[in-house]
Design a protein around this nucleic acid. Structure first.
Length: 585
DNA sequence: GCCGTTTTCGGCCCGACTGTTTTCAGTCG
């Protein structure tokens, strides 16, 4: 049993694409592997399940006979002989060289063939010696660009998390609005789709004076380097490392450009392909009817026009990932995605009784100001000594304070909750009689991360069998860019949640986003109800909700799938504990 | 290598910018 994850298989397919691109295979073959890699990475089932139960591997879009065979080999043996054969010709260090901005497959091949350069270190040495410029297609500027690119790669090799990218983009747009002649302005790209990490920030504007906008953008305070400076496009590197692009487009093309630059690439390819079949051409300037070789412009000012031209309703940016959204739009079954305003209460936050930074009353007031009608205070349980977890005596003292706050803060219901630890053996960190007295119990793993996959899965499922457990918090424990998820069979946990009526969280913290988008989508299929929460440790973190809602939207989640979109009375009836009480009394 | 409302063969999205070029290839999104 090789036990490869979808992500691992996707990475190998992606590597095959890069390797054959360096070899000089036709671009369509390269794209076929890239497309297959994306389909695998975005699949909502494990590849094993797709193979056994879901119509076979070649049912994935972009996966045919040949690639399906390679995936089978990977699943069965953990290796792919084609991949290994390619790696014997092109060392993996050459793939690392492709990460250098401005260095693509063609130059990599030339470097390998003409100068025996196969590592970043060799490349750096040759460039520093001023010998790179003597190679064909290279010059002094390319040499410098490559040296800069190597430096940058070392400094900032990772994508930026959604939270930071959102902040920087907001900052840039605020400054431009205040000091440049911009009219319409929107961030496009993966930021608009709210992906969990962002490669770079894309901003689109309309302006009567593009040059002034370019100039202002290039000179923003957070710009550390101007990488491209054209009449309608400028790219800067920001102090945080992430690059930002701005493009000025004509007002009549704003919708077309926004659609185009929002992507995803695969969504756009499919949409264009769909357009071509209807005699419609879409590009970043507009949408055109093509007849007898002549093009007539029929729209482009708004995104709605772009989609309408091919007979589709507007598809929300978060689901433009070529994961069935175009087909759904065509058949009139696009989901009505959950919105911020649908969320009626916060169901996971902390106070200064454990590791939060503010009092019960302050958190309640903050939740009320955020527009909520209820808030569950879920401080940690005793095992979380580092987080000042509450032993039973302090839990009871907190209860008194909550009762006081209920009188002091009107207009919001304060729920007495806990985030109880799931101990190593799967038991919970409070006795049942205590858990039964609370309004709400969310449980999570905070210790013993390095268990085997099976043991961890059993541990969590066992915890869920406790009838007082209402919800599982941040189910995979990952911290994006900092800590890998613990080994756990998410599918098995979700199946247990469906069986037992336990809800699962989407944690909105942009470092967590856990459950992630594809898991949320699968949870919905299985009938698992979700909670979108912030896990706030101080009042201002309540605003992180937007990232959790975005993640839910990326998972095709509707308000009816989310328990804390319900009014409190209905929420209470849907909590797992309500069923215990009915049976028990 | 994949795919099918024109197709089981012959297509496959397309434009901007840059650098190194004497007219265009490579990279990027």
């Amino acid at each position: 049993m090789a036990g490869m994850t979808n992500a691992q298989v996707a990475q190998i397919l992606e590597e095959i694409a890069e390797l054959i691109e360096i070899k000089g295979e036709i671009s369509f073959k390269v794209r076929a592997y890239q497309r297959a890699a994306e389909a695998v990475a975005g699949a909502s089932h494990s590849l094993e399940r797709v193979r056994e139960e879901k119509g076979g591997l070649d049912s994935l879009p972009g996966v045919g006979k040949s690639i399906a065979e390679k995936i089978e080999e990977l699943l069965d043996t953990g290796k792919c002989s084609y991949h290994e054969k390619l790696l014997a010709e092109i060392p993996p260090t050459v793939l690392e060289m492709l990460r250098i901005p401005g260095l693509g497959p063609k130059k990599a091949k030339m470097l390998m063939d003409r100068a025996k350069i196969t590592t970043i270190e060799q490349l750096e040495e040759v460039a520093r010696a001023g010998r790179l410029r003597k190679l064909p297609g290279m010059g002094e500027k390319t040499e410098q660009e490559i040296l800069r690119g190597i430096g940058h790669l070392r400094e900032y090799s990772k994508r930026t998390d959604l939270g930071l990218a959102w902040e920087i983009a907001g900052n840039i747009m605020d400054q431009l609005r205040a000091s440049a002649p911009v009219e319409q302005m929107e961030a496009a790209g993966s930021l608009r789709r709210m992906r969990e990490t962002i490669g770079d920030i894309d901003i689109l504007v309309t302006s009567s004076d593009p040059e002034a906008v370019m100039e202002r953008f290039a000179n923003l305070q957070l710009s550390t380097e101007v990488i491209v400076r054209g009449p309608t496009k400028t790219t800067i590197r920001t102090a945080a490392g992430i690059q930002a692009d701005i493009r000025v487009v004509a007002p009549e093309s704003f919708g077309a450009a926004l659609q185009y630059f929002t992507g995803s690439k695969q969504h756009n390819i499919k949409l264009r392909d769909f357009g071509v079949r209807h005699g419609i051409k879409l590009n970043e300037y507009g949408v055109f009817r093509v007849k007898d070789g002549k093009e007539t412009r029929i729209g482009g000012q708004t995104e709605e026009e772009m989609y309408a031209a091919v007979g589709l309703p507007l598809i929300p940016p978060e689901i433009r990932e070529d994961q069935g959204e175009i087909e759904a739009a065509r058949e009139g079954r696009l989901p009505q995605l959950v919105e911020m305003s649908d969320v009626k209460g916060e169901m996971h936050c902390h106070t200064s009784w454990s590791d939060g930074h503010d009092t019960v009353e302050a958190m309640a007031r903050a939740a009320k100001e955020a527009g909520y009608s209820y808030v569950a205070l879920t401080d940690h349980s005793p095992s979380q000594t580092v987080a000042n977890g509450l032993k039973v005596d302090r839990l009871l003292k907190r209860r008194e304070e909550i009762e006081g706050a209920r009188k002091a803060v009107r207009g919001i219901t304060i729920l007495e909750g806990t985030e109880v630890d799931i101990l190593r053996d799967g038991s919970l960190d409070y006795p049942d009689e205590i858990l039964s007295e609370l309004d709400y119990v969310v449980a999570s793993v905070h210790s013993g991360w390095k268990m085997s996959r099976d043991t961890m899965t059993e541990r969590i499922v066992r915890a869920m069998e406790n009838p007082w457990l209402d919800c599982i918090a941040h189910p995979t424990g990952r911290l994006i860019g900092q800590r890998e998820p613990y080994e756990v069979d998410v599918e098995a946990v979700m199946l247990a949640a469906a069986r037992l009526g336990v809800a699962m969280e989407i944690s909105s913290d942009p470092v967590r986003l856990d459950l992630r988008d594809v898991h949320a989508r699968r949870a919905k299929e299985l009938g698992v109800k979700l909670m979108i929460v912030t896990d706030a440790h101080w009042p201002r973190s309540l605003s992180l909700l937007r990232f959790g809602v975005a993640t839910a939207r990326r998972g095709w989640i509707e308000a009816s799938d989310v328990l804390n979109c319900l009014p409190l009375s209905q929420l209470r009836k849907r909590l797992r504990r309500s069923k215990v009480k009915v049976r028990g009394t």
